[in-house]
């Protein structure tokens, strides 16, 4: 247990925050960790969110999305990373080794993003969408004014779990090339400096919990008032049905 206390103390030594000749600083490692994670999330989001919204809106390609997500879950990230590091060239403006890392981390983040966005749209009551169509909204208006606001909680939920996946996996990037918060764990193990190992683990855990907490707050605030408001008594059965469907991510079979 005292190792954990020592680990906390290690983090609060100012010298450990700046990079020295012998070891990476926490500041630098944290910055690289966030840069790699952020860029990967951005790339994944640009690909997966529109695709997920398309699947959710049209209902096409859902089976393909589920199957490919399941396959992606089985592929070990480290394996993919080691292959791409050997093959992918660097891209200008990005530090060396960033390209394969970003490709792999983005691939990892795509399944939860896809699932969150199509499940978010599919959980919406079909009658609501039919009503929107009946009053003359275009498909684009239905998507942006009805489906996205109603499905936003699950969409953000997808972004939340993909960010956590990325942050966790960026931690193992030092096994190959990058300097991230995982570097302290790797270096500590190599030097048999277990205080440093534990300090690294605490930093990674803190980062993951903070990111998760921030998304939890965002998720609470972005839900439109009409959706989050407590349902009145006679409506409560349908509201619970919707909430259940929102969780399970299945469409509600109602109307045509």
């Amino acid at each position: 247990m005292s190792l954990i206390v020592q680990g906390f103390l290690w983090i609060f030594v100012p010298a450990h925050w700046t990079t020295s000749a012998t070891s990476a600083g926490i500041g630098n490692a944290l910055a690289q960790h966030l840069a790699l994670s952020g860029l990967s999330l951005l790339v994944a989001g640009v690909i997966a969110l529109p695709l997920g919204l398309y699947i959710g809106h049209t209902g096409k390609g859902r089976g393909v999305a589920i199957v490919s997500s399941n396959i992606a879950r089985a592929i070990p990230t480290l394996g993919l990373l080691s292959i791409l590091l050997l093959y992918l060239p660097d891209v200008p403006f990005l530090p060396s080794g960033y390209t394969p890392d970003i490709v792999v981390f983005a691939l990892l983040a795509i399944p939860p993003l896809l699932a969150g966005s199509y499940a978010g749209l599919e959980a919406i009551d079909r009658q609501t969408i039919d009503a929107a169509r009946a009053i003359g909204m275009t498909e684009w208006q239905i998507l942006t004014k009805v489906e996205i606001p109603l499905g936003i909680a699950l969409i953000i939920g997808g972004i939340r779990s993909s960010s956590l996946q990325i942050v966790a996996t960026v931690t193992i990037a030092p096994l190959f090339t990058q300097i991230t918060l995982g570097t302290f764990i790797a270096d500590g193990l190599a030097q048999a400096d277990y205080v440093k190992v534990v300090a690294g683990a605490i930093l990674v855990a803190a980062l993951a919990l903070i990111i998760d907490g921030l998304f939890a707050i965002v998720q609470r605030f972005v839900v439109p008032r009409g959706v989050s408001r407590r349902p009145t008594k006679e409506k409560s059965t349908t509201a619970r049905g919707t909430a259940l469907a929102a969780k399970t991510g299945t469409p509600i079979q109602e109307g045509n």
Binding site: M1, L3, I4, L164, V167, A168, T169, T171, I172, G182, I185, L189, Y194, V197, V198, G200, A201, V204, A205, A208, L209, D212
Partner: peptide
């Protein structure tokens, strides 16, 4: 589940008193 696997790999031995 939010904690990255690496964190558990390191915290488990410290808590259980096992070799890392």
């Amino acid at each position: 589940y939010t904690l990255p696997s690496i964190v558990l790999f390191v915290v488990v031995p410290v808590t259980l008193g096992l070799a890392i």
